[in-house]
């Protein structure tokens, strides 16, 4: 549980950094992860001094856990303002229970504009019909034959016919 909470905070911090950079959302102190998101202006930023760092050391984990209890975060689910970029809108949300962030998520576009960030994959070979035809040709390309097996090749027949 503690581990998952830390993961959630870490994810949120990453998302918050992205959102903050993209929109220049008022984030004077980006190390304060939860406030940086400015959750829909819902007073989530009331506490501007949570000491919880995203890069907490193992030794600090117990302390951080304690602080989470009086972090000043209101319970509930909060959504950040949508961050628009050339590829669509990204929206971050967190769920707070007992003053702790217990879940973090981000919605992102999967259609329309997002297609430009995920252009069609590299070209593919197309499946074709394997024919077995006889045709008038000047030369034949095939797996390299030996000097001995040449005589049985189509190329040998062409060379003979061509004189």
């Amino acid at each position: 549980m503690r581990r998952s909470t830390a993961a959630a905070v870490g994810t949120l911090t990453g998302a918050a950094l992205i959102v903050g950079v993209r929109l220049s959302v008022s984030a004077p102190d980006v190390t304060a992860a939860p406030p940086a998101v400015d959750l829909a202006g819902k007073g989530g930023a009331a506490d501007s001094s949570p000491s919880k760092k995203p890069t907490k050391k193992p030794a600090d984990s117990e302390e951080s856990e304690d602080e989470a209890g009086d972090s000043g975060l209101q319970d509930g689910t909060f959504r950040g303002a949508g961050a628009k970029n050339p590829y669509g809108t990204i929206q971050v949300s967190i769920k707070v229970t007992g003053g702790k962030i217990v879940a973090a998520d981000a919605s992102y576009p999967t259609t329309n504009d997002s297609a430009t960030i995920n252009p069609p994959a590299v070209a593919k070979l197309k499946e074709a019909t394997l024919e077995a035809q006889s045709a008038d040709v000047d030369a034949v390309s095939g797996a390299t034959f030996t000097s001995e097996s040449y005589v049985k090749s189509l190329q040998a027949a062409l060379d003979q016919a061509g004189g």
Binding site: E131, Q133, A135, V137
Partner: peptide, 18 residues
């Protein structure tokens, strides 16, 4: 233009593409 046949991979006397 030169016409180059690609040998059929099973039938030695046939072409799969030209």
């Amino acid at each position: 233009p030169w016409r180059v046949g690609i040998r059929h991979p099973w039938e030695a006397d046939k072409l799969s593409w030209v």
